[in-house]
Simulated assay, not measured.
Amino acid sequence: MSSGYQIKNQEGLYYMTFQVINWIDIFTRPVYRDIIIDNLKHCQETKGLQVFAYVVMSNHVHVIASSTEGKLGDTVRDFKKYTSGIIIETIQTINESIGEWMLNQFKSAAKKHSRNQNYQFRTHENHAIELRTPDFIREKIEYTHNNPVRAKNVENPEEYLYSSARNYANMDNTLEDVLIDLPWKTYC
C-alpha cells in the first residue's frame, strides 16, 4: 500500500475515494448504490462514522468522513470488506445481465494480489487525504458534489440523488450528513 494515502491520523477528517476495479460501472444500478448507502448508515449508527460529504458515482465513491471513536481506518476497512462481499453475493443471486462478466473481472483482479481469495471488487487504495484547512475542506466538498455535473448526469449538484449535495441544499436525502458551515455557490 502506498504510504502517501494511508489514514495516519485516526481522528482526522479525510477525503477518500473507493474505486471499483477496472472502473466497472456497477453503481449505475440502484441495488448496488443502495448497498453503499445502507452500509454507510450502519457505520454511522454502530461505528462512529461521521460523513460530511459523499457521492456514489457509476464506478467509484467519494466520501469525506471522520470517526468519533478514533478508528477511521478500521471503519473504512470494515466498510469496504462488507460492501464488497454483499455486492459479490448480490451479483451471484440476482438476475444480473452482465453478472458473469463482472464476476470474471473480479476473479481476474483477485489473482493479481496475494491478499485476495476469490474476488477483488475494488482497488486496495482509499486515496485518503487528510483535510486540515477550511479552504481544502471546501475544495474537496465542492469536488465531491460536482462529480455528477462533470459526468453530465445532472445540471446542478443537488439534483443527483446519491450525493450529500442534497443535504447541503436542505433537500430530502437517503443518508444524513454532518453539515459543514461553508458558503456554497450553487445550492438553494
Rank of each mutant, 00 (worst) to 15 (best):
V63Y: 08
W101N: 06
S58M: 04
K80F: 07
I35E: 15
V31A: 07
G70T: 02
Y14F: 12
H60R: 13
I37T: 06
I35S: 01
I35Y: 01
I98D: 04
S58F: 00
V55A: 13
R29D: 12
Q92C: 08
I37P: 01
W101E: 12
G85D: 10
S67A: 12
Y14I: 02
N39P: 01
F52M: 15
V56E: 02
K71N: 14
K107C: 01
E100D: 10
G70I: 09
I86W: 06
I91F: 03
S67K: 09
V31Y: 00
A53E: 07
I36E: 06
F52N: 12
E96W: 09
V55R: 08
N39K: 10
L49T: 02
I88W: 02
I94T: 15
I24D: 01
Q92P: 02
C43A: 12
W23E: 08
F52R: 07
Y82I: 07
F27R: 06
G70H: 03
E96F: 06
H60D: 07
N95A: 14
V63R: 04
S58D: 08
T28H: 00
H42Y: 15
V55Y: 14
Q50T: 11
N59I: 05
I35K: 12
I35Q: 08
I24M: 03
N104W: 11
I21W: 06
F79R: 00
F52S: 06
T17V: 14
E100N: 13
E45A: 13
T68W: 03
N95D: 14
F27Y: 14
G85T: 12
E89T: 09
K47P: 00
E89C: 07
E45D: 14
E96Q: 09
I88L: 08
I64S: 03
N22A: 12
T46P: 00
